[in-house]
Structures are given as C-alpha cells and as structure tokens.
Write a protein that binds this DNA or RNA. Structure first.
Length: 478
RNA sequence: GGCGGCGUACCCAAGUGGCUAAGGGAGCAGUCUGCAAAACUGCGAUGCAGCGGUUCAAAUCCGCUCGCCGCCUCCA
C-alpha cells in the first residue's frame, strides 16, 4: 500500500511520491503574531503535526518549515493601540504561540523562521520578479502584475476576468490592474522599515512564504499546507511569485485543512466568539482537544461545542480506564514488544495512508478497547487467561504506536488520572479519609450512610467505584 | 453572480461500487453488585436529504430538486 494524499491543486487523491527519494519537504503557513492563537490555529497545527509525525513514522526524512509572520499591518495596528514597539507585540505572541503548541503536544518543526529574518531573500525574489517583468515599481511600492502570470487562478479555480468583474472598489488608483498585489510596501512615517533598492519599506504578506520556503526547502517543495481560507488569495499569490521567479513548479501537493466553528457559528471577531487555545485548555486537556480534532477528517469543517468535547473526554476516559485495568491486573503485559510479524498495525497504516484518515484509526483503537475488556471479562469469569496473554500485548503495542502518531492515548494512566484530579479543590487525602469512613459503614452494613457519602462526593465531582480490591475514585466529567 | 464543499441513527462521525452501513456519546434491557459505578451482552438506521437514472450490484457513479456551509476582503 502506498500513501495517498488529497491535492487541492488537482482536487483528487494522488499517490504521494517525494521528488527526492526519501526526503520530504513541507511548508505550512504559521500564525501572524498579533494576538493569542485560537482553536482554528490549533486545528491546523494539530492536523499538520499528525501528518509530520506520520511521514516520519513511514520512514521519510521530513524537513518541515513553519513560519511566523512577524511584520504585518495587524501587528503595527496592535502596537499602536498598546503604545509599544511593533516587535514587542510580535515577540510576545511568538512566545505565546510556542507555549500553546507545546501545551497541545505539537512537535517542533525543523525550521521556524521569522519573516523579518528573511528580508534579504525576499528582496532577491522581488528583484528577480521585476527583472523578469512580473513586477513593477510605483513610488517605492512594488506590485505583482497578476495578468503576466499565465497560470494565475489554477489553485483556487478562479479566472482573472471574473475576479476583475467582482473586484471591490479599488482604493489604490495607481496600480496597473486592480488585481495586482503588493510585494513591497513603502513605509509610512513611524512604521518599521528595511532598506531596499526601491526605498525604505516592508514586505507584503505573500512574499515571505515564497522566500522562506525557497530558502529552507528549495525551489520546488513536496507539501505546502495551511487552512482552506488561505487558498485565495494567499497561496494563489505564492504560486505566482515563486513560479514567476524560478520558472519551476512551486508545490507538488497542496494540503488544506477545514475550519472550526463554535457552537455552529463561524468564529470571528465581530461575533466575539473567538476561542483561544488557552481558554480551551482551561476547560479540557490537550489530549481531549486533540482527540476531538482528530475524530473528524482534517478537511471537513468541525463544530466545537461543549457536547462534542464532553463526548471526547468520556471516550478518552474509557480508553485510559481500560489501560489501567490491564496494567493493574496483568502488569507483565505492559511493556511487551510489538511483534512486527503479526501485521496487527496494517489496518491502521492503511487508514493513515488514505489521506491521513485519523477518524478511522480512532474507531479501530476503540475496537481494540472493547476487545481488551472482553478478554479480561472472559479471563476473570473462566479463570483461564491464555488467550488474553497472547492478545493483550499486541493491543498494548498498537496503543503505543498509534499514540505516538496521533499524540493522543499517549500518557501513562497515572499521569492521565492525576492530571484530572488536579482540577479538584479537595485534597486527595481528605477524599481517602471520607472513603475510609464509608468503607467502615459498608462493613457494618450501614448502607444508608454509605450511599449518603457516595452521593455527597458525587455532588463534588467525585465518582466512587467499589471494586474487588477496594473502593477507588475518579473525577466526574462535567 | 463565480468557485468549492456538505446533508449517514437521538447527537458527533467513518465509510465514495460488492461481505451483517465502523467507532464515540446518549438511551433502554440483562449479567455483575448490598445498591450503584465500571465492564460485558443484547436492542437501536431494511436505511445513507428527496426524486429519477446507469449497473448483475449504489450511501458510494450521473441528472434534477430541496436544505446547509465555506471562499471570492484580513482570516487557520
């Protein structure tokens, strides 16, 4: 089986073959750092994180670049509003973004360049475009002449005539064509600037990605990713810039992730329903959020709602309860190695090979959860655990391997349940004391008192389970 | 208006030509339990928005209709 990837450029699934043997070059558009990142950024980051992890798992040597757009109108506006230097804003939110990514368990890309550290390369690309006749200078600005690029619109499926017809009121009458976009903007007083052959100025938004991907990954890259909304105009313009300048294909596989809605509404500043990654992490653990995000296909729109997140948390609890049950009853099984000959992972690999079908693999993981519980029930009932000892190590190995790829199901049970208990405002010792009182009552057959205690703990978010080995407690899901 | 997508059980969601339409959540019944919880077992779409068509065979392909959404402006 081979890896198949949906390519936004051709609008179909294609067999994935890197241009250079085993090496994969991948570029994903990172954040514009002018504010805290939201759950939509998290989705994109997690989707490409899994793609990155899976490509590595498949044995590819992946060079992955994700940039920071650290110079932009929005950053300048924010700096003016807060009355601080522009780079204080960008630095602040780069740090915040990095923290959020770490909290979500997103692996670090190979390269994480800042736009402002790549100005020299941008100037080179712009100069080349001018020399080749794709761009023109106007009072210190440089514009890309969209009509000069034959293939313009090939990614977004737009054609120039229609864009022209639908063009909004043009504010800049100096441009040769309303569709032309800025490669370089002359700086206004008080704005940050860099020296250039056309005077002091700063880069346009699109040029940085062309320059950075070429600098770190080469003229033609294997994968370029980002949110669906970036297809037009951002990625379309990147193609025009890069292919105009190099004369070579820019990207071989375009991958775009779908949007996150909040309670069925589009997330937007005007609706005031932006959900930051921090706020989400205040309500749910990183693994719950990842499980939620990966339970749908990366290209579909998803709806972030309290109900979906609670469902994900319940499911994740189910997973860890099962692992805990295995570990406490058959401790020697825990670290048994995966026998590669069993082919038990093939199902998962096939699914991931099919355009990274994480939802399917999660379904199969829960099949194995059921399977494991059934085996344990049978073994306890019959007193024979031969089959269990054969199968459970394989299941545990599957959990480990898939956990590494998905970044979910990846904690020890101690970590997982401990983390949940930290959200309670009652000290565990106190809970243990209350439980001891209840155990005493049960021993004396004072079930009325025992039930009262159980009920009062439940009201505080604590669930009791009376097992053969004694009473244990868990944190109730809101 | 142009381009793209979606509509699968009570909710979320996988499945894009052929074995009983995954999985999670919720629900009901049973096993277990002092009672619960957990776990297991069983029940739950004869059906995949609707209507036609192609095919030996369709949720899956084609056409039309209805409904929803995204992009076309900064946006993951």
């Amino acid at each position: 089986m081979s890896l198949k990837v949906y390519n936004s450029l051709t609008r179909q699934k294609e067999e994935f073959k890197p241009q250079k043997g085993n090496e994969v070059t991948m570029y994903v558009c990172g954040p514009t750092v002018y504010d805290l990142s939201h759950i939509g950024h998290a989705r994109s980051a997690v989707a490409f994180d899994v793609i990155y992890r899976y490509l590595k798992y498949r044995g590819y040597d992946v060079k992955y670049t994700r940039n920071y757009t650290d110079i932009d109108d929005k950053i300048i506006n924010r700096a003016n509003k807060d009355a601080v230097p522009w780079n204080e804003i960008s630095e602040r939110y780069i740090t915040a973004f990095d923290e959020d990514m770490a909290a979500l368990g997103v692996e670090l890309p190979t390269f994480r360049p800042k736009a402002t550290a790549t100005i020299k390369e941008m100037l080179n690309v712009i100069q080349t475009l001018i020399n080749k006749g794709f761009a023109y200078v106007l009072d210190g600005d440089v514009y890309y002449s969209v009509r000069k690029f034959k293939d313009y619109g090939k990614l977004s499926g737009k054609n120039i005539e229609e864009l022209e017809a639908g063009a909004r009121v043009e504010v800049d009458e100096r441009k040769e064509d309303p569709l032309d976009f800025a490669l370089w903007k002359a700086s206004k007083p008080g704005e940050p600037w860099w020296e250039s052959p056309w005077g002091k100025g700063r880069p346009g938004w699109h040029i940085e990605c062309s320059a950075m991907s070429q600098k770190f990954l080469g003229e033609t890259i294997d994968i370029h990713g980002g949110g669906k909304d970036l297809i037009f105009p951002h990625h379309e313009n990147e193609i025009a810039q890069s292919e105009g300048a190099t004369g070579r294909p820019f990207v071989r596989y375009w991958i775009h992730n779908g949007f996150v809605n909040i309670e069925k509404e589009k997330m937007s500043k005007s609706l005031g329903n932006i959900l930051t990654i921090r706020d989400a992490l205040g309500d749910y653990s990183a693994e719950v959020i990842r499980l939620f995000l990966l339970s749908s296909h990366y290209r579909s729109p998803i709806d972030y709602s309290e109900e979906s997140l609670r469902d994900a948390e319940t499911a994740l609890d189910r997973f860890y309860k099962t692992v805990e049950r295995i570990e406490s009853n058959w401790p020697d099984i825990k670290n048994a190695p995966l026998d590669k000959n069993r082919g038990s992972l093939q199902l998962f690999i096939d699914a991931m090979d099919d355009d990274f079908n994480t939802a399917y693999t999660i379904g199969r993981i829960f099949d194995e959860v059921n399977n494991a519980n059934r085996l344990m029930d049978d073994a306890i009932k019959s007193g024979v655990d031969r089959k269990l000892k054969e199968v459970l190590p394989v299941i545990m190995a599957i959990f480990r391997e898939m956990g590494k790829i998905l970044g979910v199901f990846n904690k020890t049970t101690e970590e997982y349940f401990q983390e949940k208990k930290m959200y309670l405002n009652i000290p565990p010792e106190e809970i243990d004391k209350i439980i001891a009182t209840r155990t005493e009552a049960r021993k004396n057959k004072d079930f009325k008192k025992a039930d009262e205690i159980r009920k009062s703990l439940e009201e505080k978010g604590i669930l009791l389970e009376d097992t053969a080995k004694g009473t244990i407690w868990r944190v109730k899901i809101k």
